[in-house]
Design a binder for these strands. Structure first.
Lengths: 124, 124
DNA sequence: AACTCTATAGGCATATTGCACATAAGGGAG
DNA sequence: CTCCCTTATGTGCAATATGCCTATAGAGTT
């Protein structure tokens, strides 16, 4: 979460973990990852610029490597592949996400609990 | 996720949703919320400064209201209560978090699927 | 020549955090 | 009384990440 307005509460979009996983499944380039990401994930769309910057960042951090591929049609594309380090980080991140899932479930169960109990007596 | 190092992938800590829910359950002040938050949630600890700033921000956005309470022992504390708007935002946020849970589950299932299939032939 | 699609990327303003530090009340030890 | 610890709230600064907009460029179509 970053800019926008500060008014509404935004949630994590798992950009880096998602990209890392996609590239792990199949080496790919930015434009394709944008398509995949925005079709698969059930959240708001992510800016192309954000995707590209995250890919460059992950390459800088040696989670990915890239090489230019000349395609028969259209401009050259940067093909990303995951590194050993990237796989390790992916594994660690998956573990963190499991914890986050617990956290999310904890939030939702607390929320529902409160809605059920407080809802009847405190009907406004 | 914000500062730190840029090296490792950080996940959302649900600070605002968590605080909003806690205050919804019981009006409370910052110091107490820090204790609750850092004890209940299964993630890394959150800076006191971050908690206080989020509370002030949510008050500015009219999700919370605060009033000074003088306690018998120790300095005055700012007691936060949730507003109507805050409850609405909490409800909306809970809906978003349900979606995020799906997203998280989607990530984990894709991840495990890939680990099982790729794992046997590619044992490091 | 103009337009569209593919493909990558940077500038700028804004938002948020981590770390450190400041402030302040009250209580206990010496 | 002074020093220190706990409670309690907050700010300044640098760093980081994103949204929105714009630039660049190859290749094919009209």
């Amino acid at each position: 979460m970053a800019i926008k307005n500060g008014e509404d509460i935004t949630l994590d979009k798992l950009i880096q973990p998602g990209l890392l996983l996609f590239v792990y499944i199949k080496p790919s380039h930015g434009y394709e990852l944008i398509q995949n990401y925005n079709k698969l994930q059930s959240t708001e769309e992510v800016e192309p610029g954000t995707i590209y910057r995250n890919l460059r960042r992950m390459e800088k951090n040696r989670l990915l490597t890239s090489s230019w591929q000349i395609s028969e049609s259209g401009p050259a594309r940067r093909l990303y592949e995951i590194t050993e380090k990237g796989i390790n980080v992916l594994d660690e991140t998956a573990a963190k996400i499991e914890k986050q899932k617990l956290q999310v479930e904890q939030f939702l169960s607390l929320y529902r609990e409160q809605k059920e109990q407080g809802g009847s007596a405190d009907e406004k």
